[in-house]
């Protein structure tokens, strides 16, 4: 659907093109049912980074303050990429496994239901 503008071909400038992030892309990560973190978080990260870096650096940096963080069994974690179930390859880069600019990665930790089981 084209916008109705006073001139033809209204084209707005895309402010968040990947080229604007100095070699990085934006990656979103959310921990399901752990709303002590009010929203998923955003990182600038190289598309060439291996997923291992996400797991070992970004995720702990964002979520380790949660009392259940230490209890996560990472082998049991269920992942979603942009809404689809997904199994990350720890050694492949983000780009290689289809995690592109502004992709949203969610992880669920069965058995860990947040503070007092309330989903926080």
């Amino acid at each position: 659907m084209a916008v109705a503008a006073i001139t033809e071909n209204y084209v707005g400038e895309r402010l968040d093109r990947v080229e604007n992030f100095h070699g990085n892309q934006v990656l979103y990560i959310g921990w399901d049912h752990h709303l002590m973190f009010c929203a998923p978080v955003a990182f600038p990260v190289s598309p060439q980074a291996p997923f291992r870096q996400v797991l070992e650096e970004l995720i702990p940096g964002a979520f380790s303050l949660h009392p259940e963080f230490g209890e996560i069994d990472w082998d049991e974690v269920q992942w979603h990429l942009n809404g689809e179930p997904f199994t990350p390859d720890m050694d492949a880069t983000l780009a290689e496994q289809g995690i592109d600019h502004k992709s949203a990665v969610r992880f669920a930790t069965p058995g860990l239901n947040g503070i007092k089981g309330c989903g926080s």
Partner: peptide
Amino acid sequence: HYRPMWQPD
């Protein structure tokens, strides 16, 4: 945030 529809330039 957005360019005006009534004067996009």
